[in-house]
Design a protein around this nucleic acid. Structure first.
Length: 549
RNA sequence: GCGCCUGUAGCUCAGUGGAUAGAGCAUCGGACUUCUAAUCCGAGGGUCACAGGUUCGAAUCCUGUCAGGCGCGCCA
């Protein structure tokens, strides 16, 4: 619907990016554009006059293209809005195409096979995922699905910080707990990990490797303990993510990059370009050349690399893999690193838009209105697993996807649990369940073959509610396109809620299956179209579309 | 002190420079002998944090102020 109008408007005005919007009140029409008001300044003519010209041009084009029947009404309103109301014949035609082409009608090939990598979650393998990671996972997963549907070739990647101080601290914490379990005194590392899972890890470790550490100091067994500990944690994380419905094509290990010499190579690369200098016994990346507010140390004067060094190597590696675009999804606590990573991209000779960094704001947890202090080190945090088990993966995802990523999110865990019966996700899923139920009844009790019913139906039988639903369905492609272009999957969540919000009243009012065969046919077709759209939206969000609830 | 994000209904949040600012929850009053009541119908609820500016037009853009969050290391 919007696509057709857009094409006509572009042709009529010669302007490429035309704002097309959905009017605030449906009495104005189905779609509108303020384009004439924008042109008024340039052409120095009254906007309403320009609007008249545009309407004439559009009408002329429409009739020469596919017969005159596209619009039922066009008018100029207010300061110079052009409002379009589509003709029923056009709407029915489009509905038929939706049912016939299914998902193909809903999506647009925007990506044209371009390769995009999305890196997200990437939590340190030093403890279970908490709710903040869950938010990143839900958004990253949905964005990946969205871009895939839009014709991009998408690779999802998880970056494993398995080489630094944090996994060592985890290993030390586990070792210390092992010693305690063996009845020996052993100092617990300062800043060590206190969670219960650390003790679990220690117990597991002792079950198989008791002999290897008995009577030893941490240094003598460190590699084995560290390796065991973070591998186990990674297994837990992988399982949590799988149960949350989030999967990755690749898992990039930091350790592996060190072993392959990629960190050294990356620094040599920058050195070769003249962006590395020495000062105070350390090596610095001249990131100020590329917009950072200070230069950054990459190799410390004690000979160790900083955390930044493997990050440089990692982003260089991403670039070398030849993606057309790279997306990093980070927690808000890392936003201060944006300038230095951007500097790396520029230093390597790539334009800014080669890398998109999406910042996901913090999740603040409340329990009964009071904030829950979260500290991973102290082992006090609400895990994704905990919430997922309590309110379900679908609800949790939906909750995360009904907010813009850059809004700070407050979740009261008590409210979230209590809400489980009145959660918006059920409202949307219920549409699908109800339609499935109608189809089942039609098949079983009336012997109706759905596939036959939806092939050919009489659009003239639709009432006002039905026309409203159809028009909403036909706006899905526009919403989809905008979601893709802005990288905002939450638009889908809102759309689905709106669609559900007009379906349920309709369901209450009108019966689909009746003695009137022609009407039944038309209504089944409409239901099929709704089902296609709901399924598609939920698929992108990574939420189930159940047949029964 | 500096930087980034946020501030919209009681609560949680939508809102491409455009029309009379929306939804869900909560509250109050109603509706199940029906294809599923996880639903529906109705009601109340607003200084878009504040002050300027740009514009034919600002919740939206700019500047400042206030409030909250996060970040500013040769930590990771």
């Amino acid at each position: 619907m919007e696509k057709t109008l857009r094409k006509l408007l572009i042709e009529a005005t010669g302007i490429d990016d035309i704002v097309i919007e959905i009017p605030k009140d449906e009495v104005f029409g189905d779609l509108s554009t303020p384009v004439a008001m924008g042109l008024a300044r340039i052409q120095k003519r009254p906007p309403r006059e320009i609007a008249g010209d545009i309407i004439n041009a559009v009408k002329k084009l429409a009739s020469s293209h596919e017969g005159a029947g596209i619009f039922e009404k066009t008018n100029i309103a207010g300061p110079g809005y052009i409002n379009f109301t589509f003709a029923d014949s056009f709407i029915h035609e489009q509905l038929k195409r939706l049912i016939l082409k299914k998902d193909g009608f809903l999506v647009e090939d925007i990506g044209k096979g371009k390769r995009i990598q999305i890196e997200f979650v990437s939590a340190n393998p030093t403890g279970p995922l908490h709710l903040g990671h869950g938010r990143g996972a839900a958004i990253g997963g949905a964005l990946a699905n969205l871009l895939k549907e839009a014709g991009y070739s998408v690779e999802r990647e998880y970056y494993i910080n398995d080489a630094g101080r944090q996994v060592k601290l985890l290993g030390m914490s586990v070792f210390s707990r092992c010693m305690q379990l063996l009845g020996k005194e052993y100092p617990f590392p300062e800043d060590g990990y206190h969670g219960e899972y650390v003790e679990d890890l220690a117990r597991e470790y002792l079950e198989v490797n008791k002999g290897q550490i008995q009577g030893k100091a941490f240094e003598e067994a460190s590699d084995a303990v560290i390796h065991f500990s973070y591998k186990k944690m990674l297994d837990v994380i992988r399982r949590d993510l799988a149960d949350f419905g989030i999967f990755f094509e690749t898992w990039q290990s930091e350790r592996e990059m060190y072993e392959k010499g990629e960190v050294t190579n990356a620094l040599h690369d920058l050195q070769g370009r003249g962006y590395i200098y020495e000062e105070g016994g350390a090596e610095w990346f001249r990131s100020t050349l590329f917009g950072d507010d200070k230069d950054r140390v990459v190799l410390k004067n004690d000979g160790d690399y900083t955390y930044f060094a493997p990050d440089i190597a990692y982003h260089r590696k991403k670039i070398q893999k030849g993606f057309d675009e790279i997306i990093d999804i980070w927690g808000a606590d890392h936003h201060g690193y944006i300038p230095r990573i951007r500097a790396v991209i520029r230093a390597l000779g790539y334009p800014d838009d080669h890398l998109a960094i999406l910042i996901v704001q913090m999740v603040t947890l409340l329990r009964g209105g009071k904030p829950v202090q979260m500290s991973k080190r102290a082992g006090e945090f609400i895990t994704l697993r905990e919430v997922m088990d309590e309110i379900g993966a679908d609800t949790t995802k939906f909750l995360f996807l009904t907010r813009r990523p850059d809004s700070q999110l407050e979740i009261d865990i008590e409210v979230a649990k209590a809400q489980s019966q009145e959660n918006p996700v059920y409202y949307v899923q219920y549409v699908h369940a109800r339609i499935s139920s109608i189809f089942k009844k039609a098949r079983e009790e009336s012997g109706i073959i759905i596939e036959d019913m939806i092939k050919d139906f009489d659009g003239a039988l639709y009432n006002e509610e039905e026309r409203r639903i159809i028009k909403k369905l036909l706006l899905y492609p526009m919403m989809f396109r905008n979601a893709v272009l802005t990288h905002e999957p939450h638009r889908i969540t809102f759309y689905l809620q709106e669609l559900a919000g007009i379906f349920h009243p309709y369901y209450q009012k009108c019966r689909v299956i009746s003695d009137d065969m022609a009407l039944t046919k038309a209504r089944l077709a409409l239901c099929e179209a709704i089902r296609i759209v709901i399924r598609h939206g939920l698929k992108i969000l990574g939420v189930n579309a159940p047949d029964k609830m």
